[in-house]
């Protein structure tokens, strides 16, 4: 398996650390009801098909990545920076 990091280009899976569903990006407000926190912390879908999860480019640029992939076909359709585009460096490497 390879992921195409938007900054570093195509890299081997060994460079990345898997975190879990991208639900972690949608943190409830501190005063949200218990059910919302329970959902955020514990309840996950287990789709046969397209799923989005978080990967950390540990052995590379140290960025969190949002990966859209298909659990049935193993196709990876998108890899995006959680932090958004960089300010100084221009685009991705070739």
């Amino acid at each position: 398996m390879r992921l195409t990091c938007p900054l570093c280009g195509s890299r081997d899976r060994r460079e990345f650390y898997y975190y879990g569903a991208d639900t972690y990006l949608n943190r409830p407000a501190p005063d949200a009801p218990m059910a919302a926190w329970d959902d955020y912390l514990h309840l996950r879908d287990n789709p046969a098909g397209v799923t989005r999860d978080l990967w950390y480019h540990e052995q590379g640029c140290a960025q969190w990545l949002k990966v859209t992939r298909n659990t049935v076909t193993h196709e990876i359709s998108a890899v995006e920076l959680v932090a958004g585009p960089a300010a100084g460096g221009k685009g991705a490497s070739e």
Binding site: L7, C8, G9, C61, A62, Q63, L81, A83, A86, A87, G88, G89, K90, G91, A92, S93, E94
Partner: peptide, 24 residues
Amino acid sequence: SFPAPGQSQENGAARILWTGRDQA
């Protein structure tokens, strides 16, 4: 100048290497 991802620049002994998002 600030290098693009995966690039570096050199001027005499000084060089600047891209090392991460907005970091060199």
